[in-house]
Design a protein around this nucleic acid. Structure first.
Lengths: 143, 143
DNA sequence: CCTTGACTTAAAGTTTACTTTAACTTATAT
DNA sequence: ATATAAGTTAAAGTAAACTTTAAGTCAAGG
């Protein structure tokens, strides 16, 4: 099975230009060419899915490149790659935690506006007893 | 109670330069000055916490500015602000969902490397029965 | 054969979100 | 009083991640 650059771009939800940019940055090693045109094989397609995963969990391109370079070196870098993946997992978990924290703040705001709209004004909505008590300043996750 | 720019910057986990930049972009309306120096009152501090929430849930500065401008107009924009907040809530939920999806992919990779390290090589790890079956391509969330 | 659409490159341009610099003023501590 | 720390501005600089442009090549349909 083989895929065009458009196939892969569609799978990743990016443009073909973006994919070519990734290639130029070294994120797509060893993609074959036929008459100068990129032909993605199954291994490249799978690799693109890994890239997509790292990219969509906010790993910077430079860091992804490090991972690519490690993978290129073969079995001797298995441990380094394992550490990198575990780091990224911790990263994702932290992101989810942070989003859940701010979700609560937004839900308070949602209630705030519902109450304000009911009353026709924002004035004194803050002093109305809210279903979720105002969040504690000390709990703001530090970046 | 009043706060210095540093106090607010520390609360938000940004530098004072960043806060001045936000101010210049109009995200901090009506902060008073004493001898040219910004003095944040309780209302400004609270507002900064809202900014921080929107910023850390990946709302672009331009969109935050729209929200600021609506808030400046008073009660007549309550509904618009409510819609914007609901939009952002949906946004956060989508982000969490996406992160949870990719977390599973990363956990597969984690298992993959644990197995490869045990065996000393990556070769044929893919064909080993994994605890979490390989994820289906069709399930990749589109951006 | 010819057009249309997809592919190619290198290089320049864009956007977002800061960050740094320089020159200066104000506040705090000894 | 004086040094140091923290505040101020406008403007230029930076970094990341694309995006666009220009000029071309290649493959398929009518």
């Amino acid at each position: 099975m083989s895929y065009s650059i458009k196939d892969v771009a569609d799978m990743m939800g990016v443009t073909t230009s973006t994919l070519r940019y990734y290639d130029k940055e070294g994120l797509l090693p060893d993609v074959e060419r036929k008459n100068g045109i990129r032909v993605f094989e199954d291994k490249d397609f799978k690799w693109s899915r890994v890239l997509n995963c790292l990219k969509n969990t906010n790993m910077p391109i430079k860091k992804i490149k490090e991972y690519v370079d490690l993978a290129q070196k073969g079995d001797s870098t298995l441990n380094e790659r394992y550490q990198l993946i575990k780091e990224q997992k911790a990263n994702i978990l932290a992101q989810i935690e942070q989003l859940n924290y701010y979700l609560k703040e937004i839900e308070y705001k949602e209630w705030y506006y519902e109450t304000a709209i009911e009353r026709g004004t924002e004035k004194e909505v803050e002093s109305v007893s809210s279903p979720k008590a105002t969040l504690d300043i000390d709990q703001i996750p530090k970046k």
